[in-house]
Nucleic acid binder design. Structure first.
Lengths: 214, 214
DNA sequence: ACCGCAGTGTAACTTTTGTTACTGCAAGGC
DNA sequence: GCCTTGCAGTAACAAAAGTTACACTGCGGT
């Protein structure tokens, strides 16, 4: 199962990191493979190693006070989690939950290397800052969704995002699961989905939704 | 008006930066004083100099698609705007608006120094990362507010935050202004405020609100 | 003193979202 | 086959938030 680590990293980060850094990463990191639904990080956990996403997609969730979660954003190939960065650097507990959206793999890097490379590699510094910026930007996007959009628009966005990260127009989720990630109720989701179907935007089946006329 | 720059910086950042760095900052930065209501950064602007807040408070707003804003968070002494960091490093346009909540002052630092210091001073590196982390954390807080709280709770939070940054239990805002920053309507704000008054939480006057029994 | 106006209070109504409850349906296990 | 169970559809109602409309009230300007 141990493929060539260097090749794997190059595929996801070849255009971002310099040769020497890729070699170093390959040396010190361990490969972790995950399956859909795996809980990669939970709220309150300390993070000892920083993950670099090689393949697959991960969803980042924020927990409701009473119950339920809220999807903040997805991570894809070439992403890392800035929340994790925050935890590594600040040595604090995770404020979010990370769950595998589909199967994939990541390289885990020891925290001390992370800091060392900040001084050593300009490309690493750039990567770290770019990651932070991307995450802030996604958070702004999440805020926009919550503050300015009604449920129907949020749901439509959700379906499109989901289709994108899974690279398929078929969404394999129950209404209950969707409701959970949008922090609303199943009945509301069913209602809105039915309306979308009547408008010809989607086709509803048992356990899956097909996006039409993209 | 030109007070001793070094002293000013030391007051706000004495415990964060090392001596040598404070000296350097004092040398290259320019002092900007601002009054309540001054627009410091607007959406779409490029940012050429990075601001360090010395005194006063600044509110950071996100613009609605059609009209109105939404308050994301406040900055206080010792803070900088990570969104600004993002813009400086990434050389992109600002995604947020920054307006002075009250009068104060800031030190403006040329972008190139910022990068130089990243290599030179550990305390600067720490500061930059801490700022990013704080901002991510505040964004999470904004998300929590929007996703999990009803309007009454959001309003109460808003009043408390406002009292804190202005260091006064008297809030000098019209209902209309509050509605604007919470992205709701004046009628809703008046309604909820009246309910708070009936519950003995606040005292309503013309153009100001007094927080009681803290 | 009077006017004008911004700020506030409030009623009445609509829209959006959440809740409860019940129905039917499909797939898998027995 | 039949039962169980999880999923989806829908009605009916409740709560929260947004909208429209209008009245009242201080205050500043003239």
């Amino acid at each position: 199962m141990e493929l060539n680590m260097e090749e794997l990293i190059k595929q996801a980060y070849g255009s971002v990191f310099e040769e020497a850094l890729i070699k170093e990463i390959a040396e010190v990191s361990t490969l972790v493979e995950f399956e859909e639904g795996d809980k990669l990080i939970d709220i309150g956990e300390y993070i000892r190693r920083m993950p670099l996403l090689l393949t697959g997609a991960i969803k980042i969730l924020r927990e409701d006070r009473d119950e339920g979660d809220l999807l903040l954003y997805f991570l894809e190939k070439g992403d890392t989690c800035a929340m994790t960065l925050a935890c590594c650097m600040g040595d604090t507990r995770s404020e979010i939950r990370a769950i595998a959206e589909n199967s994939g793999s990541l390289a885990m890097i020891p925290v001390n290397k992370m800091e060392e490379w900040l001084g050593k590699y300009k490309s690493w510094r750039n990567f770290v800052f770019t990651s932070y910026n991307k995450r802030l930007s996604e958070m702004l996007n999440a805020v926009d969704n919550l503050a300015f959009m009604k449920m129907d628009e949020r749901l439509l966005n959700y379906l499109n995002e989901k289709a994108k990260v899974n690279n398929s127009d078929i969404i394999n989720n129950t209404h209950q699961e969707i409701a959970y990630e949008l922090n609303t109720s199943r009945v509301v989701v069913s209602r809105l989905l039915k309306a979308f179907e009547n408008e010809g935007k989607i086709k509803l089946n048992r356990n899956n939704i097909v996006l039409l006329n993209k």
